[in-house]
Every structure is written in structure tokens, then in C-alpha cells.
């Protein structure tokens, strides 16, 4: 007989700074790689998606209006809180590490990545984009030479509400890599976790809740991608999609959905997640900003 009972965590969604159960009342049992039940998660429905988008839409102007320096501080604070949850996250990744025989894009590239390394890389990525928060505008914006008595600037503005569709693997690093670039540029995000291991995504909600991220700026849903992707794509109040690890069928679903609303879609096919040089670039931010060019009369 054990000395005490284990207290297993019940993970919920993260919407508008709160941790609601899914509106649908559905849950999702997860077993470890060894077949042991380890957790129940909320299985998000399209109504949860709707709530997440409403919250993101409300929160986005305030987040975009925060100073870039402040957004950087908040992202850095997220990285600090991730650091404190290092063991919990590594354990979550390890307990559900996909079997070697499983098929799926991206897994080969990360097969050698240990859970501890994945957490470290995730933290580094967040810190990197915390740094970019007050620098990307200088790199991507510009002062244009024009033939006339005008100053001509191109400045960057956030796109709005971005849906991040996280890959199955690497569950945490993939998610952070998709989340951080639009976030640092002043977009609000709605995250849909990967399907095989949503626990790191659920833990990330707790990280956001304790790291000065304004309510609604990050919303995290754990659920079935196939069930929600069509609604994400056709939702007129989602301005862009940032996705990785989607199958051909899912890609078709997205393309059909966006045909009517022309939202911006960035899908990463084969991503070298562990390659900092490739992933730490401001070109990851560029799809989620709008360029605005202003003519300003030069003083006489």
C-alpha cells in the first residue's frame, strides 16, 4: 500500500486569462508511452474556439498599444516562468514521447532531442523574440527615398488575431516557435495544441497566467485539430494562421476555409526546430505584421 495517493492534475483550457472547462464538457484521457493513464485534458469544441477568438479580439488593441519594450519584458517574464517549470515540462514531454515507429513529419528531425534540451531551446526561443519585440520594427520597417519634399516611412503594425496550430512534435518547442513571433509584434493569439501531447500546451497556460501576459492575449485550447481546423480557417475574425506539421488533408481543409476570407496563412513544412540560426530570424515575425507607408510633408 502506498504511503499517500498521487494527486494528478486536471488540465483545463486557458481563455481570457482564466482556466475554464470546455463548454462541451468533453475530456480526453491521456496514457503515457508505457500505457499508464497520466492525465485528463479538456477536449475543446468550436464554441471554446469562438470564446478564445472573442477574448483575443478584445485584448489585442491593448497589447498592440503596449510599448514594444514592455511586450519584450512580458515575453521575457514568460521565459522566466518556463525556467521555473523546467522539470514539470521535461517530464510532460518525456511521459508522452512518441513511439519510434510512429509516422509523422518533423519527428525524424527531433528524434534525438532530449526533453531537457527541448525545454532549454524553448526558453531560448522565447528570450530571443522577447529581444526582437523592440527591434523588428527597425529591421522590417524603413525610411523610403522619394523624389519630392516628403519624408516617406514604412512602419509595421500587428495583423490582429493569429491562430497558432502547433505540431505534434516537438510539442513544446514547436508551439513556442509558432507563438512567440506573432506575440512579440503585438498580435493576440489563439493556440491549438498538438494532438499527441497537449500537456506542454496546457502547462504553458499556467505560465502565461503567472507572467504578466494580459488576459486574452494568449488563449490555449487543447483539442483535436481535425475537428477545429475548418472553423479556424473559415472564422472571419481570425486574421492569420501560423501552423506547422499539418497533413495534406488538413492543408486542404485550411485552403478551402480561407478561400472566402483571404486570411494570411503561414505553414511551415520541414522546420529545423533546433536550428537557432533558422528559427531566430525576424522573418518569422514578418507574416504577422502589416506594412503601412506614410507620406509626411518635409518642413519648409
Amino acid at each position: 500500500m502506498p504511503d499517500r495517493l498521487d494527486v494528478l492534475k486536471t488540465y483545463k483550457l486557458f481563455i481570457d486569462g482564466k482556466f475554464p472547462r470546455t463548454e462541451s464538457g468533453r475530456s480526453w484521457p491521456l496514457n503515457s508511452a508505457a500505457g499508464e493513464p497520466i492525465a485528463h485534458l479538456s477536449l475543446a469544441s468550436r464554441k471554446d474556439l469562438r470564446e478564445g477568438v472573442e477574448a483575443a479580439r478584445r485584448a489585442q488593441p491593448g497589447w498592440a498599444g503596449a510599448t514594444p519594450y514592455n511586450r519584450g519584458q512580458v515575453l521575457y517574464r514568460m521565459a522566466e516562468m518556463l525556467e521555473g517549470k523546467r522539470d514539470e515540462l521535461a517530464q510532460a514531454i518525456a511521459s508522452l514521447a512518441p513511439a519510434r515507429s510512429a509516422k509523422g513529419k518533423g519527428r525524424q528531425a527531433t528524434a534525438s532531442l532530449t526533453p531537457q534540451d527541448e525545454v532549454s531551446l524553448s526558453i531560448d526561443r522565447l528570450v530571443c523574440f522577447a529581444g526582437w519585440a523592440d527591434k523588428y520594427a527597425q529591421v522590417l520597417g524603413c525610411n523610403n527615398p522619394v523624389a519630392g519634399p516628403f519624408y516617406n516611412f514604412t512602419i509595421t503594425e500587428p495583423t490582429g488575431v493569429v491562430a497558432c496550430i502547433a505540431p505534434d512534435s516537438p510539442s513544446l518547442l514547436g508551439l513556442i516557435s509558432l507563438l512567440a513571433p506573432p506575440l512579440c509584434a503585438g498580435n493576440a493569439v489563439v493556440v491549438l495544441s498538438g494532438g499527441t501531447n497537449p500537456i506542454p500546451a496546457a502547462v504553458l497556460g499556467e505560465v502565461c497566467a503567472t507572467s504578466d501576459v494580459p488576459a486574452g492575449v494568449v488563449n490555449i485550447l487543447t483539442g483535436m485539430r481535425g475537428e477545429l481546423l475548418g472553423f479556424v480557417a473559415s472564422h472571419r475574425d481570425i486574421d492569420a494562421i501560423h501552423a506547422a506539421g499539418v497533413s495534406t488533408d488538413e492543408r486542404v481543409l485550411v485552403e478551402k476555409g480561407i478561400a472566402e476570407n483571404l486570411k494570411r496563412v503561414k505553414v511551415h513544412a520541414q522546420t529545423p526546430w533546433t536550428d537557432a540560426a533558422a528559427c531566430h530570424s525576424p522573418w518569422w515575425i514578418e507574416p504577422f505584421i502589416e506594412f503601412k507607408t506614410i507620406w509626411h510633408p518635409a518642413s519648409v
Partner: peptide, 9 residues
């Protein structure tokens, strides 16, 4: 329509 609408619609 089965599609969520935006406020600006």
C-alpha cells in the same frame, strides 16, 4: 452560413 463572423462585417 456555418462560418463565424467578424465584428467589422
Amino acid at each position: 452560413t456555418g462560418r463565424y463572423q467578424a465584428g467589422y462585417d
